[in-house]
Nucleic acid binder design. Structure first.
Lengths: 221, 221, 221, 221
DNA sequence: GATGAATGAGGTTTCATTCAT
DNA sequence: GATGAATGAAACCTCATTCAT
């Protein structure tokens, strides 16, 4: 099983989001790992702490020593993921992109797609949990809002405008551009990950079709 | 409250899906209505039959007289919705569309968007329930597959090809075309329904932008 | 065992305090009875609902169908007792006492002692529970205050003054008189009920000594 | 807060009762102090060792290094208090009293009242704990009996007889005299300590009334 | 001596489901 | 058909106590 991998990924997110320190005990890791797996599989409400404890190989009480309630455990897991979902690579690397005049919109698009595809693949269970549980937990919605800070959005805005000024994409409000790009890429990634294994799917071609669709859709006529 | 409306809508779906008109007793309707509301609000697992009974104004036992288990109640609610999600208006009206040579792709797109928007608005709670619960209940997945019958898909396929032959849209595999159109429209509808009430949103413009984006994205160059 | 007797007594208090209606099911009575016994024996906190259920011969869940929480059960038991502790016979019969001029202080004292002795004996477990738990539950303190209504106190005040005017007892503030009488009688009743069975105790004599002590202590010199 | 004071008091009791001076470490003192406070506030059963540890600022394990079980801690706290409750000042000073012919019953009464009032005020929490827990722990009852040694009682008996022979108080059995005096004084102290702060209470007067009541009640006619 | 993570038994409460009325 | 009291399994969580460090 790949549980170990999932937790490694999650720990990476954790470190990136809290500056690190980590210091998770062995048992804590096992609890987190078990919880991620079962939450993703059955949903938060339908998962019992007993089951988590059994899968983690710890006593049930141990869970509650580290996380005051079951919901606490959920939030502990989700918080760093939310932070990283909403802080796409742009934030880190935007300056470079803006500085380098040679970068065009198509390269940007390919980079975004590549980056998010990676993130999605590395964090499938975690993202599933978030999508499932956000509607039911106001605290999570709050977390979400809290991390939609103006700064990265401003940068993204600048970037879009940059391409518009260069005449590479059509002149629409930033949020519309983001929505249209986002829909197409997320739609592609969603189908790609959800299709049953017995269906033929030429990933390379589908990606190319999606990117071309977006490029044409936003091209200045 | 619009609970009554929701059930009326659901009953319509029920009738359309099972032909006959149900013969639901007053209490059954109240149970269904209460269940839809609370399932949508808190999720299936986190909803107690006691709560449903209270909201429906019936005894807890009454629920189990009509639905053998809680899950039975869920499936009873979801089944007709699944059928109708996957049987877009095309099924009923496709012949007309195909017959009428004058109909162009843009009109078709507008019609699809309009039809799905209506469906979404009328059945928000129901769709929310389905999206939430499908991942956790193999029976529901089965139901899903069962209703992805070849017939409507074949018709849709014919329709896409029809527009491709007329040179109105680019020559891609049908499923890619559907995916690209679907992503954009669903993305638009999703944002439209999810945005908080305090954000400005010019619906007419956004719809137009989305449609133009799709039209350009699929246009033959 | 006298459990049946205790509950009968408690039901009597309940009826007297809520005007009656009773309508306790058989199981409810068994739960109350078991709870009274074990609370008195081990204290509220040290009593488990599991133990109550076992002694009552019902399922644990049944307790929570009737009483939302364990504390609810405690309050349900205690409320009518508090009411009746604080509403001594005087309330009911005071008018008679005041009307009959021939009644003297000694007869009154004997009557009080007799009445409270009866009450104490009939409700030993209940009173024990109250004394134990009141300090820890603000709700109970509130209940207490709520039932120290001005009306019965006013009547008692009138009665004391009545005897003072007749020159039968010394001229002290009512609350001091009540305190002194109360201390002596409660002290007598307490010792009487607490003494181990192997100690000799001539009840008749001790009561007489106590009454004479109070009479002398309050006599006008 | 007066936590420090409480433990100082308790240490004094401890020293007086075991002769030696205890050699309590700093942490032990903090544990005892925390335990006294929380036991008094919430009762023994409702107090968790975790809470004691937190309030004492020690690790939970440290408690169990010093006291084998939670009950052990309770008994450790209570034992010296029981000894001192039941060994009123008489024990130490009785000889003086008996020797000094000039001492009369009234002075004796005043001294008892003063001494017990002091004790009560200094040890309110401790006494509260004892009264709460004695009914539930046979070991404590045993302790109690164990300290009701014949010797101090014999001295008290002698003292009562002494005043009876001098004709200062009525001729009743010693235990009746003690009971009557005790009831009145304890009743006074109880009311004095329990009255809410918003009620007027002239302590000097009330004490005088109580003492006069006892004096009259026991006076030879 | 002190710590605090770990335990597992047991606490209170909730729940879907049954069944006599 | 409808009820709602009753059930008991299982849920979440707390607790006193142990033990390796």
């Amino acid at each position: 099983m790949d549980g170990g991998f999932i937790v490694m990924e999650w720990e990476a997110l954790l470190e990136r989001s809290n500056g690190l320190d980590g210091k998770l005990t062995e048992k804590q890791k096992r609890i987190i790992q078990a919880a991620i797996q079962i939450f993703a599989e059955k949903g938060f409400s339908a998962t019992s702490t007993n089951e988590i404890a059994r899968k983690a190989g710890v006593a049930e009480g141990t869970i509650f020593r580290h996380y005051k309630t079951k919901k606490d455990l959920l939030i502990t897991i989700i918080e760093p993921v939310i932070q990283n979902i909403l802080a796409p690579f742009i934030v880190q690397d935007l300056d470079k992109v803006l500085d380098q005049e040679y970068t065009n919109f198509e390269d940007f698009l390919r980079a975004v797609e590549q980056n998010r595809k990676q993130f999605l693949e590395n964090n499938l269970s975690l993202i599933k949990i978030i999508l499932q549980e956000i509607p039911f937990h106001p605290e999570l919605k709050e977390l979400f809002k809290q991390y939609v800070t103006p700064e990265p959005l401003a940068k993204l805005d600048a970037l879009i405008k940059h391409f518009q000024e260069k005449g590479e994409i059509i002149d629409l409000p930033t949020y519309s551009v983001i929505r249209l790009i986002g829909s197409s890429i997320i739609g592609y990634l969603f189908v790609r990950n959800m299709i049953p294994s017995d269906v033929v799917w030429d990933d390379e071609q589908e990606r190319e079709r999606t990117l071309q669709f977006v490029l044409r859709g936003l091209k200045v006529e």
